[in-house]
């Protein structure tokens, strides 16, 4: 089956719906028509740019170009993970922790899938490697930022409880155990929800996309199952590693809780 290709007039007709949104905003005085127009413009420019870049990268089929694209995506994800929590580890700690965890989790899951299950030739074929890294990154980003936010917020809130254990002679690792567990748990709940709702509440994006592109629904379902396993693995690896790395930065050789290594986000910054 060949996918149905869209022409620009097709897209233009759909954009009329955006005009409806704009009209609604003016009519109901939502004040949303400007942001709506700007966001729609951004979306179109960004997606066209990505489409053109990927077309070039696919044509190049060079491992270096593929790696470069994946690294840029990883860096943006790491920045998002670092920016989310109210609390910042000093000396760009959030960025270092976020980048390590996101890179580790994404590369492990994506390379595992490319070399065992999907197996394109060559295994780094950008047509498979880049979209796969993108999906995994999206989930890794969610998991890692929830976990980091949980740990950094929790350590401030539960300072007295953690220090009470330290003061009674508990090792740092033991004093942090409850918080570490709660943070990872919180980070993994979305993927649990995704899995239980998949196919019943929502038709997952990849499956929908592949059905639209002409794939047999049963084959598309198999693909989706594989991908959700990858996402679950990626989220788990990312949230555990982000929490361990961040917790390590909050202590020292005398197993103290070093909250002086945290600063609160300056107001007015993303």
């Amino acid at each position: 089956m060949k996918p149905i290709l869209l022409t620009w007039p097709d897209v233009a007709i759909a954009s009329l719906l955006l005009l409806v949104d704009g009209a609604l905003s003016i009519w109901l005085r939502l004040g949303l028509h400007r942001p709506l127009a700007i966001a729609a413009g951004r979306m179109v420019v960004q997606l066209i740019a990505v489409g053109l870049i990927l077309r070039v990268v696919f044509a190049l089929a060079s491992p270096v170009a593929t790696l470069a694209v994946v690294l840029v995506m990883t860096a943006v994800a790491a920045r998002e993970v670092a920016a989310r929590p109210e609390q910042r580890l000093v000396r760009f700690g959030n960025l270092a922790v976020g980048a390590s965890a996101v890179t580790f989790a994404t590369f492990v899951t994506a390379i595992l899938a490319l070399t065992t299950a999907i197996r394109p030739t060559p295994w780094y074929d950008p047509r498979y490697a880049i979209p796969l890294a993108g999906i995994v990154l999206g989930n890794v980003l969610n998991g890692a930022s929830l976990a980091l936010d949980g740990l950094l917020g929790g350590v401030v809130r539960e300072r007295a409880a953690i220090e009470a254990q330290l003061a009674l002679g508990a090792p740092y690792r033991q004093a942090m155990r409850g918080l570490v567990r709660a943070s990872v748990r919180r980070a993994l709940l979305p993927i649990v929800n995704t899995m239980s709702a998949a196919g019943v509440v929502t038709l997952p994006g990849i499956m929908t996309g592949q059905i639209l592109a002409g794939m047999d629904p049963f084959e598309a379902a198999k693909y989706q199952i594989l991908l959700i396993f990858l996402l679950a693995g990626g989220s788990g690896l990312a949230s555990v590693s982000v929490v361990i790395l961040a917790a390590r930065r909050l202590t020292d050789d005398r197993q103290r809780l070093r909250l002086d290594r945290l600063e609160t986000k300056r107001p007015g910054r993303g």
Binding site: L166, A167, L168, G169
Partner: peptide
Amino acid sequence: SAPEWRRQVVYNAAEAGWW
């Protein structure tokens, strides 16, 4: 080691924490 020390020299805060 720090934990051994703190088992011998115990600090009890004014508002002790509960975990």
